[in-house]
Design a protein around this nucleic acid. Structure first.
Lengths: 262, 262
DNA sequence: GAGCCGACTTCCGCAGCGTGGAAGTCCGTG
DNA sequence: CACGGACTTCCACGCTGCGGAAGTCGGCTC
């Protein structure tokens, strides 16, 4: 039983909140962290005073708005989101599908934006959601454009098979990633959940580094996912340009046409 | 010189990040918190290991994605946002204006969603942004529907005059808030910044408590802001119903018409 | 290249903060 | 009314974290 530093205790308390535990009472927090009630009580109070936790009528605590506020300061989150949102809206309007904007974090992809279409399959993705790279379209795009050593690190890790289609074999994954790099797009079907297919492309930032991926999810077996690639690629390029990616700096045909009017 | 608890130190470090300080080096954090370099170093490291801070190539730290992820678990944030977003999209499409979704936090309103129209006045609002209640349309709506004692508490506090139009006189504010309660809408002009007017209405949740406000901002002097009220009210009611507000539970005229088709 | 400076990292002894046990309060319940 | 569970408060001990100091690294000036 290793002893924790008090900073780690503070973080551990925040860490017990997740999508299945949005509201917890003091003693639930105490049980889940393993801290004594008095310790938990004091720390929770300090977090509450600061606004990191908020307390509700029934005595339960939830993550506070101060955290939301802080989170929006994450450059890969709030900043990127702010820039990308209008383009993502356009894309959603054109395709009427679920749109995701994902960035890498550890071996996972985090969705910093998630536009859910109203009349489509529910998809296990929410803003702030975290999924393993090897099982999602956006994740595979990000992985394909990561450093060689990072890729090997992920390939060597324990790759969970969410469905029978999930790519878990290192060899197959390597081939798939190479294909993503050459074609510029990842198309996967039923890798995370059945009945869902995903199409994703990279977004580049300054120095042309891939900083994010934008993806679309559709019901499995949808008519030619390839037909969505042009719209996706256009969106990705617009966002890349707004982020300052050199390769996206020149005008597209459409914008050249529009330019004289400005 | 009061001494801080270590939980407070941890929070103080997170607290030095704001919209003007998105990326800070170790010694900048040290200076701004007033902690010695060694203390800062250790705490920042623990935060970094946990994912609360991320470290960039230039050695600077920014808020990490783990915080963004956590923040999306705030019920007034992620949850509300998730439900409201489609309705807000529709509203933006109909009005082509900036849309905000605000919730109360202390004496301020926090924007948990901010849809910026592309061709309109830039407005000082971003997701996660915080503004005083008395100076914003959404804030005044929330204040108007707060408890009597909370209102008096705010009125008694130091109300900053952002412009000459900002309501800072307690008497004038009381009258305005009463009007907001009876009319159900707040219309303000140039109270936070010049050249911007705002229209906002309340959103209700379970037990009909006002839990949020949705607002629109337009250039000052726009043709009749009143014409936007029906669209805003419809949006607010749709969101309220989705949140389970009893008063919004019955169908509106439009939906009764549409109902047989489903 | 020498010298300097600032930023960062590491180490360690002292002491002050945090820990957890225990006692106390306030519910709702049988 | 007695019980149990959840929460709150208090305090003395001792362990964790503090900060001074020394060490490392890289960049800038002369």
């Amino acid at each position: 039983m290793t002893v924790l530093t008090s900073a780690q205790r503070v973080l551990a308390i925040l860490g017990v909140f997740d999508t299945e535990n949005l509201a917890l009472s003091l003693s639930e927090i105490s049980r889940r962290t393993g801290f004594t009630l008095s310790t938990t009580h004091r720390l929770v109070n300090e977090l509450h005073c600061w606004g990191a936790l908020s307390r509700h009528g029934d005595g339960k605590y939830t993550i506070g708005l101060r955290i939301l506020e802080l989170g929006s300061l994450a450059p890969q989150g709030g900043q990127l989101r702010e820039i990308a949102l209008p383009f993502l809206h356009d894309l959603q309007h054109a395709t009427r599908a679920n749109i995701h904007l994902g960035v890498p974090e550890g071996h996972d992809v985090i969705y910093v934006e998630s536009l859910r279409a109203r009349d489509t399959v529910p998809v296990p993705s929410r803003l702030g959601g975290r999924w393993p790279m090897h099982a999602t379209g956006t994740g595979l795009v990000l992985l394909a454009h990561s450093s060689q050593e990072f890729q090997e690190e992920v390939l060597a890790s324990d790759l969970f098979a969410y469905t029978v289609n999930t790519l878990t074999d290192p060899g197959a994954l390597r081939r798939f990633l190479a294909e993503v790099r050459t074609s510029g797009v990842a198309i996967v079907e039923s890798q995370l959940t059945y009945d869902v297919m995903a199409v994703a492309v990279p977004i580049r930032g300054p120095r042309d580094r891939v900083v994010a991926a934008v993806g679309i999810t559709l019901p499995s077996g949808s008519a030619s996912p390839h037909s969505l690639v042009p719209a996706l690629a256009t969106t990705a390029r617009s966002i890349s340009r707004a982020l300052g990616a050199p390769s996206a700096a020149h005008f597209t045909a459409r914008e050249v046409r529009r330019a004289p009017n400005r």
